[in-house]
């Protein structure tokens, strides 16, 4: 048997194995139900659970925004790593629906009422799902808020997954939350043309993309909180150079990409789930190796079978 023949033979086996794997995996979408939903946190923390249940974390795998997009993509398991709690890629099952108590507070402690179950390092924890540029994490790291050790939960309520409510300082909407700390700036802002035109803090400093429903899934407002040329152009495009105009860009050296301090190890240590193609690739490699090793014997057996066939 020639070397080429041997290789071709093993390649055929590899393709067969990969194909079968792919067929099996694709044929079985993740319809698994939660394995265990026996957390009884709500017995004592009823108010918190209620707030959580109606928020984005509680709705993470129930909201139609998710279910529709998920069904459209063929219900891949990769989504479930963040959208449910305790997802097991090997069985396609999970422990609790949504981003449950356990997702952030850890597994229920047997001594719990006596021992508290605090969330350790909230900022890094949020970053496990709200991780990269698409989820706002990279911009957030370049923000002064982050560099001054502020955490997500200072502005966001993790249970309702919405912004915290503070008594408005004569301001409506989200500006109240900003002004709650940035009072000094708000004093001058009150007399500005921007204010009179109804522009508030987040229109420039937290560029957001319309209403929740209109947004692409997963896009986050720019959490660097830095106003840049784009924010001005939103309203003043006709009066200004475009952002692609290099001459104007060089006049305004705004660099969003360079945070003052970058901490290493921001990359999540959570395993990323294998896609069906990953499994198929692995099966293919195994098939290739198996084919290479077994080809002399398989070849012999094949010849024997065909010879016998010819004799008959």
């Amino acid at each position: 048997m020639t070397k080429f023949g041997k290789f071709a033979f093993s390649l055929a086996i590899a393709l067969l194995a990969a194909g079968i794997t792919l067929a099996i995996v694709q044929a079985k979408p993740e319809t698994g139900a939660p394995v265990e939903q026996t957390l009884n946190c709500g017995n004592c923390h009823a108010e918190t659970q209620e707030a959580w249940h109606g928020g984005a974390h509680g709705l993470a795998n129930r909201d139609s925004l998710f279910t529709d997009a998920w069904a459209e993509q063929g219900q891949p398991g990769a989504c479930l790593v963040c959208h449910v709690t305790g997802y097991d890629p090997s069985t396609g099952t999970w422990k609790q629906d949504g981003v449950s108590c356990e997702a952030c507070h850890g597994q229920a402690n047997v001594n719990h009422p006596a021992e508290p179950m605090p969330v350790q390092e909230p900022a890094e924890l949020c970053g496990q799902c709200h991780s990269d540029a698409r989820f706002g994490w990279q911009e957030w790291q370049s923000s002064t808020h982050y560099q001054r050790n502020m955490t997500c939960t200072i502005c966001h309520d993790p249970h309702t997954a919405s912004l915290k409510a503070v008594e408005g300082q004569g301001e409506e909407g989200h500006s109240a939350l900003c002004i709650n700390c940035h009072r000094q700036y708000s004093m001058n802002f009150s007399y500005s043309v921007h204010k009179q035109a109804g522009v508030n803090c987040i229109d420039c400093h937290l560029r957001h993309y319309g209403e929740q429903a209109d947004r692409d899934v997963h896009t986050m407002p720019d959490h660097s909180f830095t106003a840049n040329l784009d924010s001005c152009n939103t309203c003043h495009a006709s009066e200004m150079h475009t952002s692609s105009d290099e001459a104007s860009a060089s006049l305004l050296p705004i660099d969003l990409s360079q945070p003052e301090t970058t901490e290493s190890g921001q990359v999540s240590d959570q395993p990323s789930p294998l896609s069906p193609y990953g499994y198929a690739g692995l099966a293919g490699l195994l098939g290739l190796a198996g084919g290479m090793i077994l080809s002399p014997w398989l070849d012999k057996a094949y010849r024997r079978v065909t010879k016998d066939g010819r004799k008959q």
């Binding site: 923390h45 108010e47 918190t48 707030a51 309520d157 249970h159 309702t160 915290k164 409510a165």
Partner: peptide, 11 residues
């Protein structure tokens, strides 16, 4: 009745 600061600010 309910405490308006709960659960947003703690329990």
């Amino acid at each position: 009745g309910p405490n308006p600061a709960v659960p947003e600010w703690g329990e």
